[in-house]
Amino acid sequence: MTNHVVLFRGINVGGKNMVPMSELGQLLKEMGFGNVATHIQSGNVILRSQLAEDALARTIEKKLGAAFKLDGSAVKVLALTGKRFQAIVDDRPAGFGDVPDMYHCDAIFLMGITAGEALPAFSPLDGVDTIWPGDGVIYSQRLSARRTKSRLNRMMASPLYKSMTIRSWGTTMKLLEMVRQQTGGAS
């Protein structure tokens, strides 16, 4: 069995597609996944499974739609092995996430599209926004003092946004910590 980070897109946002994390955790346990642990309400789960990433995501998506009343067009699931999640953290740009008082940093996880395909949805504002493409992720950094000027929300208006899910860098690091705890320090 392999550790996975499972990210849910489109649940518990703006009062729509409400899925209580306790019920989601229970559903995943009933599906036979091991060491299920949830983190905050936005849809973050750590679990163990024998399934490959894509098969795991599709299996959960099917069950999720059957178990909860959801707008299926908005909900997607992304599963990443603990090793792949670790690589996303390791491959971040130099200094990314290291100065949270100065910059707000997000990992924008890509679902079925490449970074090259996703980049046209972004229009960073010089001096405020910086983005870097990664493997399965876009790293986004905003100058906190000018955060209200950020153009990140323009990306959210793009049809490509349906193939992305955003996690703050703090949440990303917490999920990595949870994976490490389940594996005794290794991802």
Rank of each mutant, 00 (worst) to 15 (best):
S168K: 12
G10P: 01
V77L: 06
P100D: 04
T59K: 13
G34N: 06
G72E: 14
G25N: 07
G34I: 02
Q50E: 15
A186E: 15
T114W: 11
I40S: 03
C105E: 14
C105F: 07
A66V: 00
V6S: 08
V137R: 00
A66I: 01
P120F: 03
M164P: 02
I108D: 03
F122W: 11
A37F: 02
I60S: 01
I113A: 00
S123I: 01
E23G: 04
Q141P: 14
E117T: 11
K83A: 14
L125R: 15
G185N: 10
S42F: 06
I108P: 00
V99W: 05
A66Y: 02
K149R: 15
S150Q: 09
V99D: 15
T2D: 13
Y139E: 06
S163P: 09
L78I: 04
G14Q: 09
F96E: 03
Q50D: 15
S163V: 00
I108G: 00
F85V: 11
A145F: 09
L70M: 06
M155L: 10
K69G: 10
A87R: 11
Q50N: 15
L160N: 08
P159L: 04
S187M: 12
T130H: 13
I166L: 12
M173G: 06
K69S: 14
L28R: 02
W132I: 07
G25M: 06
G97E: 00
A186L: 13
P159W: 09
D54K: 08
G82L: 06
H4C: 10
K83R: 13
A157W: 05
L160I: 01
P124E: 09
G127I: 10
